[in-house]
Design a protein around this nucleic acid. Sequence first.
RNA 1: GCGGACGUGGCGAAAUCGGUAGACGCAACGGACUUAAAAUCCGUUGGCCCAAAAGGUCGUGCGGGUUCAAGUCCCGCCGUCCGCACCA
Length: 877
Amino acid sequence: MASETPPDAARERYNAAAREKHWQGVWEARETFKTSNVDRRPKCYVLEMFPYPSGRIHMGHVRNYALGDVFARYKRAKGFNVLHPMGWDAFGMPAENAAMEKKTHPAKWTYENIAAMKKQLKSMGLSLDWSREIATCDVAYYHQQQKLFLAMYKKGLAYRGVGRVNWDPVDQTVLANEQVIDGRGWRSNALVEQREMPSWYFRITKYSDELLDELATLERWPEKVRLMQANWIGRSEGLLMHYALSGKALPKGKKWAELEVFTTRADTIFGGSFCALSPGHPLTVELARKSKGLQTFIEECAKTGTSAEEMAKAEKLGFDTGLEATHPLIPNRKIPVFVANFVLMGYGTGAIFGCPGHDQRDYDFAAKYHLPITPVVVPEDQDARTFHLAGKAYDGPGRIANSGLLDGMTIETAKAEVARQLEDIGKGKRRTMYRLRDWGLSRQRYWGCPIPIIHCDACGPQAVPDEQLPVKLPDDVTFDVPGNPLLQHPTWKHCACPACGKAATRETDTMDTFVDSSWYFVRFTAPDAETPTDLKAAKYWLPVDQYIGGIEHAILHLLYSRFFARAMGATKHLPPGMKEPFGGMFTQGMVTHETYKSSNGNWLLPAEIKIEEGHNGRLATEIATGAPVEIGDIVKMSKSKKNLVDPDDIIASFGADCARWFVLSDSPPDLDRIWTEGGIAGANRFVQRIWRLIEDAAVVASPTGTKPPAHLSDDAIELRRAAHKALAGVALAIETLRFNVGIAQIYEFAKAVQAAIPRQGADHAWALREATEFLVHMIGPMMPHLAEECWARLGYNTLHADQPWPQVDEALLVDDTITIAVQVNGKRRDELRIARTAANAEVEAAALGLEGVVRAMEGKPARKVIVVPQRIVNVVV
RNA sequence: GCGGACGUGGCGAAAUCGGUAGACGCAACGGACUUAAAAUCCGUUGGCCCAAAAGGUCGUGCGGGUUCAAGUCCCGCCGUCCGCACCA
């Protein structure tokens, strides 16, 4: 029999490139991964974040989609009706940049990129239902998005308001915060201005509480992401309180008689030594009309940089208005009113009272302007009379002091007491504030979804009537002049008012691309529906059971999607109660690689260098010149550092299975995966080893469908145990997204199968057949092409992709005889082979008789023997 | 500054419940096969003591603690990474 197997030298290696193409063709021809919305099986919606069509996939994509594909294929094998779709986040700036630089139309550039990337994704052998493919720049998609927008507009969830934006005066466009670098536009390098501009907003703050409170229901989300969202929403409970204003400079009118401030530390009011207004506060603006000095001060404030670092370092600056504020509970104390650069207009009321003793910012400010600093909270272990602030504010726990009627209270009691008293006299009100603001979605750009609104001088903003939708982007645009091409288009914006019929103009802003990605996962459930969503399909498929993507979307994309789910519920585009779009969320790590730098300081591609490993470490040289190369840090693969490995090259030389196997091995999926030449070679060795193993096993194993023999030898039973244990272990690893652990078990099991091949006898042949098939099932989700090839080699003419995950025989998971460690005084001294069911007394007796135990006990009597059944024995002497 | 995560061999890591630390992979070293190489196969590989084996001993960032037993739990440090950042 064995002679049928060719010797290694003559054997053909598994030709991944050819076979992978073959099986991809078979899957496509048979529509193996096409999913129906009508199916009796339980559903499972597996989704990876859809890519931006930059033109080429990178290793980050390979990892992301390999992770998702393992899960999707496994769930299919487990009998689920799996939805695993793919699409393109296709609107956005890079297409317009390309249009300006390369003179290609954004649409042409985008669709060519999509075609190229789709080809690359297909070469990965992903179990995707391509019939549901969507691109957000498809008119069919953004048509539906416009309907959604109008439905939200009519519900008051989208509105037009005025807000501050980062305006790039050269490019004539609004910039996102992350596009402003050191106060300058990232492309134009022009000084960015803060402008008040009319913009469109989504009323996400309506759901602040829900979005925060319901984070608790997201049990299969990373704690870290939930925390980041909670901090982003930033709810804080506090008190609005009114200070009476006085002073010569106080403007006339009732409106200026009182100053409203917000505080979360009402307990510290007796420590308040000043009030401060934001430079943008209405009272500041009013006062500035009569004060040149204040005007100058406001201008100075506006100039301080917008970058986070600058803000933190910026000195606390104030301008004394000459006004005085009287606290409602302490009529005899008047404190000065300043305008201060550190008070934000966008939070609370834009005005604060400063308590230097217990707030570091206020402390810094008070120190600079020589204002009183009185501690009013004293730590429990300190005496109020001697307690001293050691040069900084104290914000820890303690009891109230120096505060008259509040003295001796806890912080919480004092807060409640102040709130109660102020509410009683109508000078205060408890209030919850949020850091979260409404979502500004206007972008002055071309390549985005047009906002379907018409502005009429007589009637105001009007929704575009349904029959006039979609508002299509015009094709004939130029990017020769800065600014929004839609605004400059000669005819596009001119139209008739739907209400009065007179000449009107279209909204020329387009939507933030985060809008596109806030509901695409719903559209996948019914990609061809004439309405934005199909309630029946949405109800069947949603929520997404497992969503996988990068941590960089932890806040915005995921929070916006959660908002959209609620808003779409309100507009009846989702079934009632369907609030959370993603039941399970997983954030995968990056793919990293060593960096290489030539002696002249240029970064080099891994392909441009050669590495020699020897006793004295690793030496790198540049292939072209033979010059030595400096090996740098291991960082995320990036174009700028050139530490890139091209998925196309890897797939061409090793195959998609090998690339998938590599990115799944070794590192936990949520941590970074370091790409190494050695690692990919190791993965390739395993691919070849599996193929040889299956070829060998196919020769000696029982034919398909052989009935189990009546008697199995111990070795055969051991192989069965190993097979069933590995199968259960791999299944658990996949379910818990710990693929690296599952892969380690596959390696181990493959060794056991290999060792069993030379054994003779019908029982071995049968056990080997089972073990070999199990092995193919285990590698299937990760290396699907190889699994098909092996499945065929084992004598089947069915598709492995259609095979169910085998049943585990639970009885085989537990051993009859087990090995337990025996310790003496907590140190392992020997081990014991004993029946799993042995009684504790029996275990104890056997343990005490072990050679290593006797030696370690040195003749002393056992004071205590702890027997943990089936785990360990510890003898205490 | 605030919040969070992490720290285990030369490297990536495993250890699901407090119960044999280092599975599995990479790298390295030795051997078989070969004229040779590649490929493949077999073996060794945490430190120290011992000629070797047997055995001993130390060992999961550092210092304490709880426990029969700690990588795992508690307290205090140190370091690295990430997020937020004048949010009153």
